[in-house]
């Protein structure tokens, strides 16, 4: 009996030690090529591979989880996971409540994707995902904003003619444009908003931020991050 108790105590103790190094990563799982759920039902994409690599370099044991975009920040603060890795652009308003690591994707271009080259993106109806920096940008431009909860629906709205164009990260839209056989085209100039994509952390987790930043810097320095970007975003992907 005593042995059993001791064993349980030891196990509990070791579990306690191990838990200090387990980092839970949360993603949305609906934003290819950044992150998506592949056909096996696993998190996949650029951020999956990047996240695993960062964890390896920082000697952290990482597990993956998915969360709705809407509640991804409140759940981070509530401690349900430790890192947001969901193609989240670094913005001032987000920086007020969470802290960001160094960016691992350069300030990316956002672009308008439309069904015809002469689509009116200045005053027409433009769709965007609710709660994104692109939605805020469209609201401030002269265009009429049409908001959908998922990125997929914003593109569907252009296909079925509900919106003249969709405004989103160019990297997200590019596959739709290339695979549409000319039905969908980019319109107007690319617009750079946001401060690049970074990992979102609780402001109190300074130690974790340090470890992750070091790993990201190392990946930038040896070119492995650029190689990953090339792999997932093709030659058009922005490099460091």
């Amino acid at each position: 009996m005593k042995k059993l108790l001791l064993a349980t105590a030891l196990m509990a103790l070791s579990a306690g030690f191990a838990s200090a190094d387990v980092v839970r990563l949360a993603t949305e799982g609906a934003y290819p090529p950044f992150n998506f759920i592949d056909d096996k039902g696993e998190v996949a994409g650029f951020e999956r591979e990047f996240g695993d690599e960062v964890c390896k370099r920082a000697a952290l044991e990482c597990t993956w989880t998915t969360n709705e975009w809407d509640s991804i920040i409140p759940n981070l603060q509530s401690g349900n996971y430790d890192v947001i890795i969901a193609g989240m652009s670094i913005t001032d308003e987000r920086s007020k409540v969470i802290t960001f690591s160094d960016n691992y994707y350069p300030p990316a271009a956002s672009a308008y994707l439309a069904a015809s080259a002469d689509a009116d993106v200045k005053t027409g109806i433009v769709s965007a995902q609710v709660g994104t920096i692109q939605a805020a940008y469209v609201a401030e431009s002269g265009a009429t904003l049409l908001e959908f909860p998922t990125p997929d629906e914003t593109v569907a709205a252009v296909r079925n003619g509900e919106a003249a164009a969709v405004f989103a990260d160019k990297d997200y839209l590019r596959p739709f444009a290339t695979e549409s056989n000319g039905a969908l085209v980019f319109v107007g100039e690319d617009i750079s908003i946001g401060g690049g994509v970074g990992l979102g952390l609780r402001q109190s987790d300074t130690e974790l931020k340090g470890k992750l930043d070091t790993a990201i810097k190392a990946m930038k320095a040896d070119g492995s991050l650029n190689a990953l970007i090339e792999k997932y975003f093709g030659p058009e992907g922005l490099k460091f």
Partner: peptide
Amino acid sequence: RELGGTKTQAYD
């Protein structure tokens, strides 16, 4: 929602 959404070549 997830399965029904448009799937680009990134998926199998």
